[in-house]
Amino acid sequence: MSEPIIRLENIEKHFGNVIALNGVSFDVRPGECHCLLGDNGAGKSTFIKTMSGVHRPTRGTITFEGRPMSFASPREAMEAGIATVFQDLAMIPLMSVARNFFMGREPTLGWGPTKRFDVEKANAITMAEMRRMGINLRGPDQAVGTLSGGERQTVAIARAVHFGAKVLILDEPTSALGVRQTANVLATIDKVRSQGVGVVFISHNVRHALAVGDRFTVLNRGKTLGTAKRGEITSEQLQDLMAGGQELAQLESTLGGTV
């Protein structure tokens, strides 16, 4: 198999006296979808934030394309080709959809003092990318604050897909989406993967994970419980691992196997 694009080894992250991550190792290869699973508070978001330059790990090493790397800011990670859909989406409600879409990466026209934000291009790309995700925007100048939760999430996904040249990180991207949009997102993951992008996909939904995942890593209380390849693990086993193996079997019986 090909070399990983990004490899993180023994990552630890402490917030004051809180140990959010306690030695997590993880890698993503080009053209695969690596699912990161785990209970609430397991440390998934914290972990992907060390990958996208938001947090610096307290301990551990990051290797990007074979070289040791330490991203000083999300901007650096982005320039390296890593795009992220954060759980909180990182959108500015008062700004228009197009301005949010290109925030920090505005297309420009001209040079020197006449170098300017190419608003037309930004608007056109935003509308096109949103339509591709199955959302018809009212207009590119609509403020993000007026979008529905799912529409907002779709803008964030479309933005990351547009900019995720090498690694695309999706932190629970489908939590607010409708059936059609979820199918669209999963299909999009499949498409960018076939173009050689490495995808990191965080989800609480085992069916979504199994639908697109090539490998599955389960986090629990800041540690890796293990990594399994597609076909090596059943949906039930995965679900047990995700819940930290606790009492899910019992719960499941009371709920009549609907979880």
């Binding site: 999300p74 982005m78 500015i92 409600p93 700004m95 301005r99």
Partner: peptide, 19 residues
């Protein structure tokens, strides 16, 4: 765009690559 973003939500702006 960066000025609007930095004032709108500094954290979101920074996570989106705005210095």
């Amino acid at each position: 765009n960066w000025i609007f973003a930095a004032g709108g939500d500094a954290n979101a702006a920074s996570n989106s690559g705005v210095p």
